[in-house]
Amino acid sequence: MSALFNFQSLLLVILLFICTSSYVHATFPAIMDRNKTGPLGIFWKAARIGERLSPYVSLCCIAMAVSKLIE
């Protein structure tokens, strides 16, 4: 089943996208800051979400990991 049709998989993809964007922004901030607008701006926006809401994102990642282990 595709991640688009399975809600739990879609949430997992979104969480991984936010975490990866935050990590890349912390490692290479110049690359992300150049592309704040346009199609590549979604990476910058995801990095902002990951930086500003990091406690909630980490709790969601832990909850997703627990739910995957239970499955």
Results as ranks from 00 to 15, higher is better:
Met1Val: 07
Met1Gln: 07
Met1Asp: 06
Leu4Thr: 08
Phe5Pro: 03
Asn6Glu: 09
Gln8Gly: 08
Gln8Met: 09
Gln8Cys: 06
Ser9Asp: 15
Leu11Val: 05
Leu11Met: 12
Leu12Ala: 14
Leu12Arg: 15
Leu12Pro: 03
Leu12Glu: 11
Val13Cys: 08
Ile14Cys: 14
Ile14Arg: 15
Leu15Arg: 04
Leu15Asn: 09
Leu15Ala: 06
Leu15Cys: 07
Leu15Gln: 04
Leu16Ser: 15
Ile18Ala: 11
Cys19Ile: 13
Thr20Met: 08
Ser21Arg: 01
Tyr23Thr: 03
Val24Gln: 01
Val24Asp: 00
His25Leu: 09
Ala26Gly: 10
Phe28Asp: 14
Pro29Arg: 02
Ala30Cys: 04
Ala30Lys: 08
Ala30Pro: 01
Ile31Tyr: 06
Met32Ala: 04
Met32Gly: 00
Asp33Trp: 01
Asp33His: 03
Arg34Trp: 08
Arg34Tyr: 08
Asn35Gly: 06
Lys36Tyr: 02
Lys36Ala: 03
Thr37Lys: 15
Thr37Ser: 12
Gly38Arg: 00
Gly38Tyr: 00
Gly38Val: 00
Leu40Thr: 01
Leu40Met: 09
Ile42Lys: 01
Phe43Thr: 00
Lys45Pro: 00
Ala46Thr: 02
Ala46Val: 02
Ala47Arg: 00
Arg48Gly: 01
Arg48His: 03
Gly50Phe: 01
Gly50Asp: 01
Glu51Leu: 11
Glu51Pro: 04
Leu53Thr: 07
Ser54Trp: 11
Ser54Lys: 07
Ser54Arg: 13
Ser54Tyr: 06
Pro55Asn: 07
Pro55Ser: 09
Val57Ser: 04
Ser58Met: 12
Ser58Thr: 10
Leu59Lys: 12
Cys60Val: 00
Cys61Asp: 02
Ile62Val: 06
Ile62Trp: 01
Met64Gln: 11
Met64Lys: 07
Ala65Gln: 05
Ala65Asp: 04
Ala65Lys: 04
Ala65Ile: 10
Ala65Met: 10
Ala65Gly: 10
Ser67Ala: 15
Lys68Trp: 12
Lys68Cys: 07
Lys68Val: 06
Leu69Gln: 10
Leu69Glu: 08
Ile70Glu: 04
Glu71Trp: 08
Glu71Thr: 08
Glu71Asp: 07
Glu71Pro: 03
